[in-house]
Design a protein around this nucleic acid. Structure first.
Length: 350
DNA sequence: AATTCGGGGCC
DNA sequence: GGCCCAGAATT
């Protein structure tokens, strides 16, 4: 049994590092190229509980539209929320904008370069602060994400279930973090977790840490890390109202900043509960219920959304929401469940 | 310590 | 269907 070292992983990373739009490859980093802290921060926020494949196009659109943190700070809320639509966890988008504005107003447009400074920013927690500090500012901070938890649990054959095991796994990860190339090391562990030490059927035979891995020796790698079982998801019901005006405008409303889909554009409707909640339609009209419902699963419940549609004239006055004309309303600004409802309604209007 | 927050890709 | 994902904020 050998001992796991950061050096062994870095040598693997020098050859096998994945390519990502926000990443500076190890060879370029060695030649002195520094990552843009704005790019690292934005990619890390987008990557929270989100796959690299899902993030890539969003990252490219955001950085093309807002090339600097000052550009982003000057954006309208609705622009940023619309550009984030479909990526999920919309509190991230609200905090992204808050954070950009804080960097401009409180830090002279430069991201703090310490763990504590980064932790003070909205939407930046222990993981993201360590990622930006190590990758963008070359500080020896320890990133602990799902990949690191899995790699450490296997490397040391830890059977304590998550999340209880997190402090122990964090300590094990910290003990391995090197003083030199901490950013490359952080990305190397995550690449290892994403490509070799995967949740199912890990490729232990080609792992740079196959020698020192305790779980490989014990044969327990595929079943680690253990996790406490999660609660079943209930089903909730609701109604969404899609009103189309004769000029092509649609009746939409901005959801409150807190809670589910907070800050996002959506169709007026009932609350979502075990039964259809009592409510008043957003507009007095002849509503038609579509035969198909929109089905959608959120983090903690399934939703079956009944869709009601109507055509109204130019003089229609809504109780709630605003009619957005075609040149203002982009369906891509809608979160996914609202877009599903729109797709059903659109086939009705067509 | 538990819960609330999205969405998609993979079995 | 459930599981996973470069988690953070709230209660």
């Amino acid at each position: 049994m050998t001992t796991a070292t950061a050096q062994d992983l870095l040598e693997w990373y020098d050859i096998h590092a994945r390519t990502m739009p926000w990443r500076v490859p190890p060879a370029a980093r060695a030649a002195g190229v520094r990552p843009d802290p704005y790019h690292i921060w934005m990619s890390e926020v987008m990557l929270q509980q989100t796959t690299v494949a899902a993030v890539r196009d969003y990252f490219l659109r955001f950085t093309a539209r807002w090339p600097t943190v000052a550009d982003l700070a000057a954006a309208e809320d609705a622009e940023v929320m619309g550009e984030w639509a479909g990526l999920g966890y919309y509190a991230r988008a609200r905090n992204l904008l808050k954070c950009a504005r804080a960097v401009v107003s409180d830090h002279g447009g430069q991201f703090p370069d310490t763990l504590a400074g980064l932790l003070s920013l909205p939407g930046v927690g222990p993981y993201t602060a360590a990622a930006v500090a190590s990758i963008a500012f070359d500080r020896p901070e320890t990133v602990v994400d799902g990949n690191v938890e899995r790699v450490m649990a296997r490397l040391h054959d830890v059977h304590t279930p998550l999340p209880a095991a997190k402090p122990a796994l964090t300590a094990l990860a910290a003990a391995l973090t090197p003083a030199t190339r901490p950013g490359d090391y952080a990305q190397a562990v995550m690449d290892l977790g994403a490509t070799i030490c995967t949740p199912r059927s890990p490729a232990c035979g080609i792992c740079p840490w196959r020698g020192p891995c305790a779980a490989r020796l014990a044969g327990t790698a595929p079943e680690l890390p253990k996790k406490t079982p999660k609660k079943p998801k209930p089903t909730r019901l609701g109604i969404a109202y899609v009103a189309r005006r004769s000029d092509g405008a649609y009746l939409l409303e901005r959801r409150p900043d807190r809670g589910l889909l907070g800050g996002m554009l959506g169709w007026p409707g009932s609350d979502w509960a075990e039964e259809i909640a009592p409510h008043v339609p957003p507009l007095e009209a002849d509503w038609q219920t579509l035969s198909a419902e929109a089905r959608h699963t959120f983090t903690h419940f399934h939703l079956i959304l009944q869709v009601r549609v109507t055509d109204v004239g130019l003089n229609a006055v809504p109780r709630t929401g605003d009619f957005l004309p075609p040149e203002v309303f982009r369906p891509s600004d809608l979160p996914t469940v609202m877009r599903k409802a729109f797709d059903l309604a659109r086939s009705h209007f067509a």
